[in-house]
Design a protein around this nucleic acid. Sequence first.
DNA 1: TTCTTCGGCTTTTGTAAACTGCACTAGCAG
DNA 2: CTGCTAGTGCAGTTTACAAAAGCCGAAGAA
Lengths: 145, 145
Amino acid sequence: MQFTKAEEYGVFGVLYLAEKDSSLVTPLSEISEAQGIPEKFLAKIFQSLSKAGIVRSHRGVRGGFTLSKKANEITIKEILETIQGPYHLMKCVSSMSECDRSEKINGYCALRELLVIAEKQLVDVFEGHTLADLLAWQRANQIPH
Amino acid sequence: MQFTKAEEYGVFGVLYLAEKDSSLVTPLSEISEAQGIPEKFLAKIFQSLSKAGIVRSHRGVRGGFTLSKKANEITIKEILETIQGPYHLMKCVSSMSECDRSEKINGYCALRELLVIAEKQLVDVFEGHTLADLLAWQRANQIPH
DNA sequence: TTCTTCGGCTTTTGTAAACTGCACTAGCAG
DNA sequence: CTGCTAGTGCAGTTTACAAAAGCCGAAGAA
Ligand code: SF4
Ligand code: SF4
């Protein structure tokens, strides 16, 4: 269970928007270049974010993206789940029917029990932090250039 | 960041040993068949567990494996980390030098900060539970055959 | 010695992540 | 209305790693 690049790129892309004045429309090419992310890859990620209502797209000349909510209303969990779907340590955590060894476990799985607990701890962290939190940390700790 | 089959197999393999009398030497073939795990794959997993001192191997006729500690002395974290190495949401969590975008983040990464917090929550769950806990849950909940 | 079971290493297979490309569409500027 | 620009949608490629299988050697019991 590793974080994917898509998730990392998504967070940094949105964070980049959050750093600017919220009325500024920023084209993908700028985000892509500033953050060192392959443009077409980022495009796909932002399409998902756009559909999920996290960012708003503006087409045409001088188009681009803006945040569609305030930074403190966007949880990290939202971003991550939009990009890669519900986050599960194992498929069976979401529903027991996804268990691929059901005939071996005699109706109960202790490992799954533990995974459910562990996953909740993890997701709670992502749910409990918003984009504004990351932004605040960054402003407090990043070396001013 | 998904759990790997190797980890799942490892936990169930060790759990299978824990279910039996600790003096019983159990061959890989039995574990493999009982748990429905490819034998050579399980062999590789148990080799790691053996080196890590979690199980003890016995070669020759009527050989096999036994637990080398009591079930309540084996944490789930131990098992998982033995099989797949230290568990990290992203490489950079273990050491900042693994960051592959270091020139973009200006000395500080807010995402990493969050990942460190999240990972700690996760690992604490695995560290706080032992094989004996899983065994107890299983005995309490599994349908007697 | 001989059979059995683990040990170590190599290779193959399968699948998903990571990235690319192209045709299309919506919107703004002049 | 015309033409450029930037996002949309989907298909395709490449790369990486998980999952599994295979082979031969080593250790140990009988
Ligand atoms: S055996 Fe347990 S851990 Fe594995 S898929 Fe089924 S419920 Fe999940
Ligand atoms: S940019 Fe941040 S999250 Fe990404 S690898 Fe570097 S430290 Fe980790």
